[in-house]
Amino acid sequence: MPHVIIPVVAAALCLVAGTAYADRLLVSNEKDNTITVLDADSLKVTKTVPVGQRPRGIVLSRDGKSLFICASDSDEIEELDLATMTITRTLESGADPENFDISQDGKTLFDANENDATVSFTDVDSGKIVKVVQVGVEPEGMAVSPDGRVVVDTSETTGMAHFIDTTTGDVLANVLVDARPRRATWTPDGKFVWVSAEVGGTVSVIDAATHAVVHRIGFEIPGVTKEQLQPVSIAITPDGTTGFVALGPANHVAVVNAKTWEVEKYLLVGQRVWNLALSRDGKWLYTTNGISNDLSVIDVAARKVTKSVPVGGLPWGVVVAP
């Protein structure tokens, strides 16, 4: 049934220019030390907020009222109040925080500290680090399971996905994937974790219960060299049917059938496509393109790129906020 309805709704949204929501898009600009705020309907930049040095990973608080920012070169996490658009406080992190995720109850941030080979747990209320977990070299990808019990970290040089218990901090499993794993993303049902390997050129699908790699998704685009196919960010639609994989310098996003793991389409976006975010209703996908300094907008149902919007210098992360 939803197969019939989705294109219709999407078409309707296109006609009325998506007036159903007044969401905001927040983009971290690594080079400019700013957050760009866009209106999700008009795709107009409404504000540019100066933040700490080299903002990369960004994540929304569970109540949607603030944005947490990894200010990598400031070695701290900043909290941006989304009502006033001002930095209200800083939270502790380890050295060079690059990326993080937030617990399902919103009380803990799990930070990948790239230079330290650690994952730290930052208590949101106190802003203090309450736990430090040793992981592999160059941790980067962080993803909390839908049930909140497990956080997966990917360590780039070690080539592993580490499954970490969010309560105890114990490492439950270390799963070897292909070279230079960048990101982990859970399927909405919590059964699988997809891990992208930038240099290996694959996405490994890990069974979350057995920790076995059950499938490796490969990519091939005519006219694009094997070396350029570097999977980074992954987004899976809330209904669990479709996965999107940003292919970095290949300047494409792969559309993957999340049930069969077959790649069904490649969409041309901006240069060095890095991070992805889905709109809250799952109808739109936004991509940050680091070299062309823009954001591409993809119509999920139609599988088409509809627009690209200039943002700041070296856009890194993107988040959809109410």
């Binding site: 080979a117 592999g136 070299v137 070690t158 080539g159 592993m160």
Partner: peptide
């Protein structure tokens, strides 16, 4: 770096 990975292997 090898030693860090070696902790897990």
């Amino acid at each position: 770096e090898n030693a860090t990975t070696g902790r897990f292997t």
